[in-house]
Amino acid sequence: MDLALDRLLAAANQVILGKQPQIRLAVCCLLARGHLLIEDIPGVGKTTLSHTLARLFGLEYQRIQFTSDILPADIVGSSVFDAHQQLFSFHPGPIFKQMILADEINRATPKAQSALLEAMEERQVTVEGRTYPLPQPFFVIATQNPAHQIGTFPLPESQVDRFLMRIELGYPSRQAERELLSGQPRHVLIDELPVALLPAQLADLQQAADQVYVSSALLDYLQAILAFSRQSTDFASGLSPRAGLGLLAAAKAWALIDKRQAVLPEDMQAVLPAVAGHRLNVGANDSAAIVAPILKHVPVL
């Protein structure tokens, strides 16, 4: 199974060039049963990344383009009256797929955003008093334009917390860009991609990630990080207990990808920018810079 994971990462790196760390974080996020927020300008490959992952994991894939006039019903679906049968029938929305790419989520109104976020959190949809479970696994990759663009509704602070990780893709390196330009179109490559991991295998991996050992020394370190974030004047708000749980789950998945059975401080440090960056309300987008004081000052020893 470890080999399958390696194959998967290798294949993804073939499609998305020069973005190994981001791909790894995205996979890690999936293994930790979290949702992913990608924040970047259009065109850097957000869609490609999500599509590639869906392919490799063999998940049903649906892209939802968020616009300013999208309604909650456009996302979750609505009840339609069938005049012949004299019955209401539920027409499921696009969200009833295993992997959702919620593109440009900050273009939609808060109402539409929260419809998505509620579904993400509860992994089910409630329409007209009836509850419809979402498929398993359920994984949302949302993309967001940088907040300073006009005509956007940035996700409220309380809601970005629903995403386990936020990553930035950034422009490709010169060499990667050259390969991109000279190679085949990406969508062709994606269509050719084999399924690297069966859904059952994914479930097993997620379970294995849960069982990665966490020593009390590591929990001390985690608590020190949380305490530091709450004390430090560098941050507008400290990390919530939910953030702590997310950090732990992500670090476990990271250790699993690294083929280890125990979490090391380095795992925690590796996932920290992605997990904590968007929760500290600093305003800046560079997650690595945001969490730098934590990495520098919280003692591991």
Binding site: L264, P265, E266, I294, L295, P299, V300, L301
Partner: peptide, 9 residues
Amino acid sequence: VDVGDGPKT
């Protein structure tokens, strides 16, 4: 060796 360094680092 910085305070924030893990053993592998």
